[in-house]
Design a protein around this nucleic acid. Structure first.
Lengths: 188, 188
DNA sequence: TTAAAACATGTAAGTATTGACATGTTTTAA
DNA sequence: TTAAAACATGTCAATACTTACATGTTTTAA
């Protein structure tokens, strides 16, 4: 997709960072929009350095440990800002193994379908609680010129998304139970 | 992710098909849960045949055109049904380039952020209208033992998802406009 | 003081996926 | 009749991504 490049440029646009710190951002703040493991981050940093979009300075931590502190170059800023305003078409609905399972669920017993749905509901509901906890760091809506504003909007979207997913799963569960009730009734 | 395998097995569990027909299913019925291009489908069919999970029969269409009609084997059915009932943990929130753009949007002008949001809203709203058109093929909720039931539940989820995305984007637009209104007011 | 956790940076092999290349047949509608 | 659209099957190169391998330092808490 090529967005990893812009995720890194964007983070370095905000603040100088090491590869380790960038990786941590992907595990925390950026979790709701983009992710990357350190094994993808380090090669990308190398490539962006070769392209002249970022640069680094070696810093010594403790006695010997070498850290590379990366910063964005003027060229990097230009490329990032160009991407930041670009109007893109929407992406196809993301692949989802659970939805695939549900699509084919007429092959399994109704009780097993119900188990699948209830398992998903529990997990999504737990994630919803986590996200609601996470948004508490904002005591009010941040000003629109602060970096926190984007963070807030994305987090809000993630919460609304989980709420909606829970609502859908509950609806599916209810529909399945009704169908199963009808069958049981028909047997009697 | 390895789910392509089960998508193909699932489709062949329902009905014998050629690679071309399978590819079309990914472009239509399976669009809301999984996708694959023909360049991925043909090699996967070859691999599944070698593993003994599916088999094919060559059919002649017209005068010379050779079609391979694939069917699922007993071994394939077993593997598919095992997957079909497996409880999986939920996947991380999918990567989304627009959300990444929004996350970093304090770097751009408020008017440009508004353009990004409005562009997304228009596109998602159009997709919503398409999905609502698609669900009309069901005059009522299909019985839970028909293949259409899974299709219905997934389509319902896709619609609710787009509705929610539109709601979130509208909310973001309103919040941005309010912030911009305050700034304009502060200038006077 | 010492062990575990966190910090720090890389590489390598394998899988998944996309987009382009490559080729030909059959059907449909102008 | 003829051109376009749909049918039909493949390969190849490049990118994206994950998991595991590989190694070492510094900090923290028991």
């Amino acid at each position: 997709m090529g967005a990893l490049k812009y995720a890194i440029l964007g983070l370095l646009y905000q603040k100088n960072m090491t590869g380790y710190e960038l990786t941590k951002e992907f595990e925390t703040t950026l979790l709701q929009s983009w992710r990357a493991k350190h094994s993808q981050v380090y090669p990308e940093l190398k490539s962006l350095t070769e392209k002249g979009l970022i640069q680094y300075e070696v810093k010594i931590a403790g006695n010997v440990l070498e850290k590379k502190e990366y910063s964005i170059t003027e060229e990097g800023k230009n490329e990032f800002l160009q991407w930041a305003v670009k109007l893109n078409p929407i992406k196809p609905i993301p692949k989802d193994e659970f939805r695939l399972q549900l699509f084919f669920s007429s092959c399994i017993k109704p009780e097993e379908r119900l188990l699948l749905l209830e398992n998903q509901f529990t997990n999504h509901h737990n994630r919803l609680l986590e996200l609601r906890k996470a948004i508490k760091k904002f005591s009010s809506i941040p000003p629109d010129d602060e970096t926190e504003f984007g963070d807030y909007l994305v987090l809000l979207g993630a919460i609304m998304n989980e709420e909606n997913t829970c609502k859908w799963l509950k609806k599916c569960i209810t529909m399945c139970q009704e169908k199963m009730g009808i069958e049981v009734a028909a047997e009697n």
